[in-house]
Design a protein around this nucleic acid. Structure first.
Lengths: 343, 343
DNA sequence: TTGTACGCGTTATCAA
DNA sequence: TTGATAACGCGTACAA
């Protein structure tokens, strides 16, 4: 069974190539008999138009690129990214687009030019994380590639972006602890150069303020999202004798590290300290104890980003849209009432 | 700054398009002065050859596809896949290939034909997991796409594949437990329809046999790799009063579930039961207690698969190569000596 | 409704 | 060493 091209199909169907092309692209103005003849040949020989030739003629590839942060194993290996990629992939598949995957770091700025942004090879781009945006945006701005950001970036407000309401998420987490009676609630955050992280910090602070709980600098740690950071910080606090009965971690990975750190220091969760995470990674159900956390729609974020991007590609309309999805409190077993008298 | 095409570059450099083409592709037989003139124009206008047109002319796309299992969130969200994807990506990037990402499940066999295997759009394919192989292989076999399997599949022995030595890994895990004095060692495995899983079971059994430890059907569970399965199985065994002092789990996710299950049932790890996992996911360092496990080179597996695939693409040589990488025992804190008198 | 002819931007062949 | 010219396979005005 040879591979046919459009001319051979046309000949076999006794029509011109235009007719074949119209049939393949569902264009109108094709007589029923012609269409039928073409479809028979197509089916018989399993004809598929050559994607590359089609791209050359139409100047679009039906392929989008996603740029993911390239960090260390620990940060990449937490399951967050696969879910995000999956959300993007499935929406793209639904609408007929392929997905090209890349991991980039700041060391490879040159490669981004030469490799990622190869001319005409993709229709659009999704940048995962503000970190990625900072790395790649310069190379992108020159060319006019449709782009969607996952994670708002105030500096690039003309670009579509999607995120969750980080402020609200953090607020809900702290509110939950407060309603359980906790007054001294520590917080672990990643670098506030990222808007996402800054807003989680703001939500945390505002909840403390609104409810009149203890606000103190020594109850706040700024580092990164790694388990290791959570672990080290928790141990440091315990060694220093920093008093707290609640702990909000701006990611589940931080929380996981903190859980281990607290365990090492002989503190019971939630007996001595209640812990809330952020993300609701699949593993959060299986920490010891299972983690109360703020669920963010990771898959949904990816899916929505893909939607926005494809809309942009197909309508040629740049919107400067900034969308927020809602996070949700998931109560498990790492939080409990504050001990009476502890305030 | 307009985008130029090869003809415009040629005109500006006062040469013919052929010369430009040769320069861009590092072909010989170009005079130094001509080369210099071309490179000046290229640099000045930031000219990049149109990838699509090039693909049409050369009939290769410098893009490979990877097919990942599409399972539930829990199974996808454990960090394994990102690492595997990263290994593939980085090797591809090094050799100038793009990576197209897809997630497939058995429900979408049609889409695999229509979408994934689109004509001429990729140069080769990596199938992650025997599961994926089973789903996609039929559609693939018709066309002659270079393919590499991650995870050996006895049925498709003519295709290149890469895996780790699953038998040896399991053997090492059990041997470790035995040397700590354990005699009753349970094992949790995934479906033995997968060669990978079957070999882990074999390694487990053989180690028991070689060292004269207890071999018993009731100490073996066959399910899947999910945390939930580990959790349920552990609880079931405890309820039934199944005696054991060691537990080998064929994945870290199983082990994580088991850890929680044992905890719920009031068993101390490693005080009452020592647990060994498999994979060494990044999270294995942060379970409570940190998990002793068999480390497999996840990133390296991806990298090696990409190497094999690109070799195949570029040498046009199908080898039927089956490569095994070595797993390694990582001792953390979930294993300890058997209690004296417990045998 | 159909068919012809041309363009998309390269690479490859072959003669000069 | 160079430069026409012919593919590569498809989409699409435009004319019929």
């Amino acid at each position: 069974m040879e591979k046919l091209n459009i001319d051979q199909v046309a000949k076999l169907a006794h029509v011109s190539r235009s007719v074949v092309s119209r049939v393949m692209n569902n264009h109108p103005n094709v007589s029923d008999v012609a269409r039928k003849r073409v479809l028979e040949v197509v089916k018989k020989y399993d004809y598929r138009p050559n994607t590359v030739a089609r791209s050359l003629a139409t100047n679009n590839t039906f392929e989008i690129g996603i740029l993911t942060t390239r960090r260390g194993d620990e940060a990449l290996g937490n399951g967050f990214w696969t879910l995000l990629h999956l959300g993007i992939f499935e929406e793209c598949a639904r609408r007929g687009y392929f997905v090209r995957l890349s991991f980039i770091s700041s060391e490879m700025k040159d490669e981004i030019h030469n490799f990622i942004l190869n001319e005409h090879s993709i229709d659009g781009l999704i940048l995962l994380t503000q970190e990625v945006t900072e790395i790649a945006i310069e190379a992108l701005s020159a060319r006019g590639v449709p782009t969607v950001l996952v994670g708002h970036d105030p500096i690039h407000s003309k670009m579509d972006s999607v995120d969750i309401d980080n402020y609200a998420g953090a607020y809900k987490a702290v509110e939950h602890l407060i309603k359980l009676g906790h007054r001294k609630i520590a917080g672990m955050f990643a670098s506030i150069r990222m808007q996402e992280s800054e807003q989680r910090l703001e939500g945390y602070k505002q909840a403390l303020k609104d409810y009149g709980a203890v606000e103190a600098e020594e109850l706040i740690s700024i580092g990164d999202y790694s388990q290791n950071c959570g672990y080290q910080t928790a141990r440091k606090w315990m060694h220093q004798g920093t008093e707290m009965s609640g702990l909000f971690c701006a990611s589940d990975t931080l929380a996981m590290g903190a859980l281990l750190g607290l365990h090492r220091e002989g503190r019971a969760v939630p007996g001595d300290i209640s812990v809330v995470g952020f993300d609701d990674l699949p593993i959060a159900q299986y920490t010891i104890p299972p983690l109360t956390t703020i669920k963010q729609p990771i898959y949904g974020k990816g899916k929505r980003a893909a939607e926005l991007l494809i809309n942009q590609i197909e309508n040629k309309s740049v919107n400067g849209l900034h969308e927020n999805l809602e996070p949700e409190l998931i109560i498990r077993e790492s939080t409990g009432p504050a001990k009476p008298g502890f305030e």
